[in-house]
Amino acid sequence: MKKIFIVLILFNVSTYSLYAQKKTIEGRVIDDNLKALPYVSIMINDTVKIGKTDLNGFFHIEIPVSVKKILFSTVGIELASVELAEKCDEVEVVMMLSGTYDFITHRRVDQLRMKRFNKLPELHKVAFEKGIFKTIKACYTQEFIPCFKKSNVKR
């Protein structure tokens, strides 16, 4: 009986230490005009708010080691979904301003947005050259979130 009790205690302590592991991430968020974005919400698991940027767009957060995806959200700016690399602890994000598209199809809207999205790595490099960012290249991959998804329903 004592052996079972000791094994259970060791098991509980080891699983507790797994859940307690955290990773510190810091960085900055700017828009595609290279202006700092204040009060951008930072979320994991698409709904759990873990922090926000300060007045100058800087943030410092702690996330569980198991989390690989971070979502940045604010009013007037398109969502930015970032998938972290293994040893990524400096996350500097360029977010696109959202716009209104009238009298064109959803497909064309996504084409125009994708064109702007593909310029974000170049803007990251420009931000580094101007001293806004600390890293020349992002250590994460940013995911394009389309406005319109094709349905598989045939009509």
Rank of each mutant, 00 (worst) to 15 (best):
K68M: 06
T74V: 14
C139V: 08
V13C: 09
Y39A: 12
D54A: 02
V75R: 12
F148A: 11
A36F: 06
L55W: 01
Y19V: 12
A80M: 04
T47P: 00
A127R: 06
I70M: 09
S17W: 07
K130A: 07
G131D: 02
I70T: 02
G51F: 02
H60Q: 11
T53M: 03
V126C: 03
V109E: 04
V94W: 05
V75H: 10
M43V: 06
K149N: 12
N118T: 06
A85Y: 08
I25C: 04
T15Q: 12
F59D: 00
V126R: 14
R28D: 00
H60S: 13
P146R: 10
R108H: 10
H124N: 11
F11M: 14
F72H: 02
K149G: 01
I42G: 00
L120F: 04
F72Q: 02
M1K: 15
E86F: 08
C147P: 01
L112Y: 09
Y140W: 09
S73Y: 10
P121R: 13
T105S: 15
I63K: 07
A127C: 07
D102H: 15
L97K: 15
L84H: 05
L37V: 08
T105F: 03
D89V: 15
K69S: 11
K3H: 10
I30Y: 02
V40F: 02
Y101I: 05
I44Y: 07
I77M: 13
Y16T: 07
V67W: 03
V75T: 11
V126H: 09
P146C: 10
I70Y: 00
E122R: 15
L123G: 06
I63Y: 00
D110Y: 03
H124A: 11
G99H: 14
E143M: 15
I63C: 03
L112W: 02
F11I: 15
C139N: 07
L84N: 02
V65D: 04
F144S: 03
E143V: 15
T24Q: 13
K125F: 09
G27Q: 01
D46G: 02
S98D: 14
L34R: 05
G57V: 06
I30L: 08
K154Y: 10
T135N: 13
P38Y: 01
K69R: 15
L18C: 10
L79Y: 09
A80G: 11
V91Y: 00
C147M: 14
K130I: 08
P64D: 04
I4G: 04
